[in-house]
């Protein structure tokens, strides 16, 4: 399909930014955790779920969103946050547990909230879906054409919240889009062992006013195309959509996952189909940008990430007694 050049380049730049961001996080996370891995040690403690390989899902739909649209993301949130335009300095500071962080160090990497761009995420599988529906309901109540997107993993489509919410959203024709990132794995359980339907877009058939879309092979351009349809449907008040994208989890469920459940050749074969390389080849082969311009985009993205990590590292930790603040306003 034809895709506006500036959108194509934005998608590339954003995917590069997300990938580079997480590469920096891999290193920062490993600090203090060698030679013995201790999840609570180092400048970035706690669980760390990275999204390398899943960037197409995030950029393909966020290319159609404004800051007035809402995104609810799960425990693997960085690519969505970056594509939604979350403040990178404050997001990184939050992951480092600093007082300049989005949550003043109270949330961490699974609990990032940036109301400026209407982004949130959370650590409970499927729980963001009804909350996104609530944002969609609020848009309807206020009479705006804003939409809400809930990103979930394919495992979340088997949770009650998914079905409860889709039924209600379909009934009320809410401007809700559920993006199912099918990375084939629910931690160690393959989708084939957990899910009694070949792809979750088919579940749209269970509800009126609901459309399902399937994006194969982690294709960011196809993701962009179907997202445009889904977002436009939502803005017109025609009801919710389910988009399932077949995507790749290059890393473990979390950092430190020994991944004994995966065949040794799975990731190397996925890396051969890296969506970032594929979109870069498209840009160059179609002449959307020159090698030099692409490199400039890459440098811009990386500089922004480097600055965010510097900001995070240089920021202060919160005072311990600040733990007692913000329970109530």
């Amino acid at each position: 399909m034809s895709i506006p050049k500036e959108k194509l380049l934005w998608m590339y730049e954003t995917m590069v930014k997300s990938r580079y961001y997480e590469e920096q996080l891999v290193e920062a996370y490993a600090e203090g955790k060698k030679p013995v891995f201790n999840i609570g040690a180092g400048p970035v403690p706690g669980e760390m779920h990275l999204s390398n390989g899943q960037e197409p899902a995030a950029v393909g739909i966020c290319a159609h969103l404004t800051k007035d649209d809402t995104v609810a993301s799960p425990h693997r949130p960085h690519h969505h946050a970056i594509a939604k335009g979350v403040n990178l300095n404050r997001m990184t500071a939050e992951i480092f547990g600093k007082e300049t962080g989005l949550g003043k160090g109270k949330g961490g990497h699974m609990h990032l909230f940036d109301p400026e761009v209407k982004f949130s995420c959370g650590g409970i599988v499927a729980a963001g879906i009804p909350q996104a529906a609530g944002a969609a309901l609020a848009a309807k109540q206020k009479g705006t054409d804003s939409v809400a997107v809930a990103f979930i993993g394919e495992g979340a489509a088997n949770a009650g919240a998914f079905h409860e919410t889709l039924n209600m959203a379909a009934l009320w024709k809410l401007p809700l889009i559920v993006v199912v990132e099918n990375n084939s794995w629910g931690i160690s359980v393959p989708k084939t062992a957990s899910t009694a339907i070949s792809s979750n877009d088919k579940r749209a058939a269970a509800y009126e006013n609901t459309t399902g879309y399937l994006v194969e092979d982690n294709d960011p351009i196809e993701m962009y195309r179907v997202s445009q349809e889904a977002v436009e449907r939502a803005r017109r008040g025609e009801g919710p959509s389910i988009i399932e994208i077949e995507t790749f989890r290059f890393l473990g469920h979390f950092q430190g996952d020994p991944e004994l459940y995966r065949e040794k050749d799975e990731v190397p074969s996925l890396l051969l189909r890296d969506p970032i390389e594929r979109i870069k080849n498209k840009i160059l082969s179609e002449g959307a940008a020159s090698e030099n311009e692409v490199e400039q985009l890459e440098n811009k993205a990386k500089n922004e990430v480097d600055a965010a990590f510097q900001f995070a590292r240089e920021s202060e930790y919160p005072k311990p007694e600040a733990a007692l603040e913000d329970v109530f306003c």
């Binding site: 809402t70 609810a72 109301p115 209407k118 949130s120 729980a127 879906i129 009804p130 909350q131 996104a132 529906a133 609530g134 944002a135 969609a136 309901l137 609020a138 848009a139 109540q141 206020k142 809400a148 009650g160 919240a161 409860e164 919410t165 039924n167 209600m168």
Partner: peptide, 14 residues
């Protein structure tokens, strides 16, 4: 779950 979650999402929107 759906409607209490929706109330939360709507409250976050003001």
């Amino acid at each position: 779950t759906a409607f209490i979650g929706a109330a939360i999402g709507a409250a976050a929107e003001g």
